[in-house]
């Protein structure tokens, strides 16, 4: 029965949109017609997304006088970069560096340890591994923000309060459940014959993990790395609670304090918003196909 199902699925995949065969073509017109409300909604939603983005970008290029004088949605008559200069002078380079350190310092270990755990969960057996898997799955259901008070206490007792390491350790722990779930789904898809042939070649499980499972799940690893990276990069509660010195602010926290200090200068505040998003935007432009395809596959499994 499974073979029948399998061939069905393969046929369906062959006729999938990207294939563009006659079946695919007919189907896509079908989908298009299905979607008149979807299509209309699609353009409306585009406006809902783009309008705020447009407003933020053009306002950040306005002078104070332009902000008060011009129509809010008009393109600035004399665009200026002085807001950006001001933001950069407000130590945003430091915030950027801190964010980068915390993000890399959390994501690399989180993905590494999760990958090893996923490999063990998929390839191994026994009560212990089942228990571990169950614990991680339960971690998905728990709003981990609720643990912030004990984490604050532990970080103080560990003498890590007001350090970047204080942000990394809980970030790693919070990232593990979802990362393990997604990676183990992908490792499960590696054909068993490949594992068997590795075993027959005399490779240990350790070698199999690095030489077979790692390269084959590379797209999934990149995906979870990006997803976790976004979460850590944009995280706000941990830095708010666990750091104090201006020199250790990460971008979202820097953004928040900046808007508190410069609340009268909206163009400068919005320039800080643009500047803090720019690095991520560049990464998105480079890796969007990988990110979108990976997230789709990861969550709809």
């Amino acid at each position: 029965m499974s073979t029948v199902l399998k061939s069905d699925v393969q046929e369906a995949r062959a006729a999938s949109p990207s294939g563009g065969g006659p079946a695919g073509l007919k189907l896509s017109t079908r989908l298009a017609r299905l979607n008149i409300p979807g299509g209309l909604g699609g353009w409306i939603w585009l406006a809902v997304i783009i309008l705020p983005v447009y407003y933020v970008v053009i306002t950040s290029l306005k002078t104070q006088a332009g902000y008060f004088g011009q129509n809010p949605l008009a393109v600035p008559t004399s665009p200026t970069l002085e807001n950006y200069q001001m933001v950069l002078e407000a130590d945003f380079a430091t915030y950027f560096l801190n964010s980068a350190i915390v993000t890399l310092g959390s994501v690399i270990p989180a993905v590494l340890v999760s990958f090893m755990a996923s490999f063990a969960i998929v390839r191994g057996s026994g009560r212990f591994l089942k228990l571990v898997n169950g614990a991680f799955l339960m971690g998905l259901a728990i709003p981990l923000q609720a643990t912030i008070i004990p984490i604050y206490l532990m970080i103080i007792r560990l003498n890590l309060y007001d350090s970047l390491l204080a942000l990394m350790l809980p970030s790693i722990a919070f990232a593990i459940p979802l990362t393990v779930l997604i990676l183990s789904n992908f490792i499960r898809d590696v054909p068993n014959e490949l594992f068997e042939s590795m075993r027959l070649d005399g490779c240990s499980e350790w070698q199999t993990m690095w030489r077979l499972a790692l390269p084959l799940t590379r797209p999934a690893i990149v995906t979870v790395a990006i997803y976790n990276g976004l979460n850590v990069w944009n995280g706000f509660l941990l830095p708010l609670v666990l750091t104090q010195s201006p020199g250790l602010r990460v971008l979202p926290l820097g953004l928040w304090t900046f808007q508190g200090e410069y609340s009268v200068n909206i163009p400068a505040v919005l320039a800080s918003v643009v500047l803090s998003t720019l690095p991520i935007l560049v990464l998105y432009i480079i890796g969007r196909r990988q990110l979108l395809a990976g997230l789709t596959a990861g969550f709809s499994k």
Binding site: P109, M116, A120, G124, F136, L144, T147, A173, F174, I176
Partner: peptide, 23 residues
């Protein structure tokens, strides 16, 4: 293979399960 879960388990226990009990 169970040993491979130890690093992940360590982080998860110390910074998620212990705080959960702690709260």
């Amino acid at each position: 293979l169970a040993w491979l879960t130890v690093p992940a388990l360590f982080f998860f226990l110390v910074f998620a399960v212990v705080p959960l009990a702690g709260v």
